[in-house]
């Protein structure tokens, strides 16, 4: 929005200044430092970036990260869509139950939830010991320290982030538009596919963007549930920085991740803007 006059500009600046200052000190400056490391450690040059694109280990971690995040995003957004649908359009009781299921985990620390999955799924965890006690399995199933468990843990964390943009998109749908479709003889399935889903598509795009971007930087959940086997980018940065004195490569990976996220956000937000104004199709 344009500022109408200069007198309104200064209060606005004064109100936003603390945030800008905080972001500059807490994010922009440290990030510039990290970016500096990536081209100066151990010596000046683009050597670390050449290593990054040439190192099969680093590339495989990037590929795994994208694969996991893609699956996580699809599963989380799809699940969130179904959950939100019931939350927004369901009965009072359904709404209350879902609110508890969505928001109570939201308030619990990431670490606690990751250990919760571990307690449930590890070799001597609840699931395996009960199944063994019931005689359904002979030896414990390997349910953690693999990609599926990382995905499950991440989906669990990310669903609430997808629910909020989806809910606002679904609440904005005019009930009469759906009634109109019914009155014209459309079945429920038809109304969903040709009216409800297209109308909530901006929410789906928003949810996808948020979940995918968040998931790229996940550290705690994959570190605990992956058990050092399914390493993702954030964990690789950690290993380069703290386990081996390879700060230059760690910094280069961080910069690459930030650039990828920025590019994705630019791309997707443009797509979202197109979908919202309706000039895209």
């Amino acid at each position: 929005m344009m500022m109408r006059n200069r007198s309104a500009l200064w209060p606005a600046l004064a109100l936003t200044a603390p945030l800008v200052l905080f972001l500059a000190c807490a994010y922009a400056l440290p990030f510039l430092g990290v970016a500096l490391w990536s081209v100066t450690l151990p010596e000046l040059g683009t050597g670390q970036y050449q290593r990054l694109v040439g190192d099969p280990l680093v590339l495989s971690v990037f590929l795994r990260t994208f694969r996991i995040c893609l699956v996580v995003t699809v599963v989380a957004v799809a699940a969130a869509y179904a959950i939100t649908y019931v939350w927004v359009r369901g009965s009072r009781l359904q709404r209350r139950i879902l609110e508890i299921c969505i928001f109570v985990p939201f308030w619990i620390s990431l670490l606690t939830r990751a250990f919760g999955w571990l307690a449930l799924l590890s070799n001597r965890g609840l699931f395996n010991s009960w199944m063994q006690a019931l005689g359904l399995i002979d030896s414990p199933l390997a349910l953690v320290r693999n990609e599926p468990s990382v995905i499950a843990g991440m989906v669990h964390v990310l669903i609430p982030f997808a629910v909020l943009p989806l809910a606002s998109a679904m609440r904005a749908v005019d009930e009469r538009v759906l009634l109109a479709a019914r009155g014209m003889g459309a079945s429920r399935l038809r109304i969903f596919w040709s009216v409800f889903l297209p109308l909530t598509l901006p929410g789906v795009i928003g949810a996808t963007l948020i979940v995918f971007v968040f998931s790229l930087g996940f550290f705690v959940t994959p570190a605990i549930l992956g058990g050092g086997r399914s390493i993702m980018v954030a964990e690789l940065v950690y290993l380069r920085m703290f386990q081996s004195p390879d700060w230059g490569l760690g910094a280069a990976i961080s910069v690459a991740l930030v650039l990828i996220v920025a590019a994705l956000m630019a791309l997707l937000s443009r797509f979202a803007a197109l979908a919202l104004t309706g000039s895209g199709k």
Binding site: R176, A180, R182, G185
Partner: peptide, 19 residues
């Protein structure tokens, strides 16, 4: 049901499909 009656309906605010 409404979908079987197939009466035409013009809603208050028109209820056009915006997309």
């Amino acid at each position: 049901r409404a979908e079987d009656r197939s009466f035409g309906m013009v809603f208050q605010g028109y209820a056009l499909f915006p997309h």
